[in-house]
Amino acid sequence: MRRVAIVGVGNMGGAMAQRILDQRWPVQVHDIDEGRMAALAALGAVARPDPAAAAIGCGVLIVCVVDAAQVEEVLFGPRGAAQVMRAGQAVLLCPTISPRDVEDVAKRLAEQGIATIDAPMSGGPARARDGTMSLMVACEDAVYERQKMVIDILSSKVFRVSQKPGDGARTKLVNNLLAGINLAGAAEALAMGKSMGLDLSRTMDVIEQSSGQSWIGTDRMRRAIAGDYAPRAHVTLLQKDTRLAVQAAAIAGFTGPLGAATQAVFARAVEAGLGDLDDAVLFRLLAGS
């Protein structure tokens, strides 16, 4: 079945829907924001009133919401998709949630013969739109082969992590913890540069060509220097992800010095009322400006 359902068509899900529509595959969408559905309907998607309606007749349901509570609602809520899905269909889980939540979802779906593809994503809306985002895929090989066509449409950078749902989530949390550490470190270093009276733009010129360079540091601190905190990636996202990463590490019996400290920085930003701003705002928080 080439028809694809997507529940959650915000920045990432909407870009994924457009990418699939470009390939002339039929797409059914649902979102709590009717404006998002209308915009995609204008491009050829079919808007559905709830997740269950979206999933009917689709080979794969892509879940692209924010957290585990929303995943639970989409799949197992009063109008959840799982109640209408049948054996042979698959759910592609894209949110960053805990490995245990992924494993629980996979177990419950497997009882109905529905496959789970644990596939957290990385790369942002522009890369989702052109099919170059990264997908960290954990599922059985047979499931992967059945859904390979749509996975290849979505991503030219597919990483086959393992055959065990949950490992994709673990990989994503490892990546996002490092992203959070790099961002917090860049914000601290730039705040230190400000306190020393340095020209921050020139300081970034040096960092970008030297050992302190990181992609997320460059991307976010250039915006911070310009005072641009319009949200591309809200603080709450890495606040959630660093929290989940530290929790997953503890479950695995690992404790590191930087993860908890980074989690505390993001938590502090949310407590300061900065959660809905771009995570570049860590600079403002640490610089005291």
Rank of each mutant, 00 (worst) to 15 (best):
I117C: 02
I6S: 02
V281F: 03
Y229P: 00
A179R: 07
V174H: 13
G180M: 08
L274N: 06
K107Q: 15
G57H: 07
I153D: 05
G57M: 04
P120V: 01
M12G: 01
A41L: 02
A138D: 00
P95E: 13
K164S: 14
T96W: 04
A250E: 15
A42C: 07
Q112L: 15
L178V: 11
A54S: 10
I32R: 14
D167M: 13
V27K: 11
N175I: 10
G131S: 12
D141K: 14
H30Q: 09
P51W: 02
G10Q: 00
P95Q: 14
Q239M: 05
V105N: 07
L286N: 09
V137L: 11
Q23P: 03
K148F: 05
E34N: 14
R86N: 07
V4F: 03
R202W: 02
L238D: 01
A115V: 07
T262P: 04
I6Y: 02
L154N: 08
K157I: 00
R79F: 03
G185Q: 09
R146P: 03
S162F: 08
A287I: 02
R243W: 04
F266N: 04
A119L: 06
A68C: 06
D228E: 08
V270C: 05
A15H: 10
R108V: 00
S156I: 03
L285K: 09
A47Y: 03
A39N: 14
R129Y: 02
V71C: 13
A47F: 02
Q28M: 11
D22L: 12
R146L: 11
E34M: 07
G35Y: 00
W215Q: 11
M121K: 10
G10E: 00
F283N: 11
V9H: 00
N176D: 04
A52W: 06
E72Q: 14
R129W: 02
L237W: 03
V158M: 07
I207R: 09
K240D: 01
I114G: 06
A17P: 12
V206K: 07
L154F: 04
R222H: 13
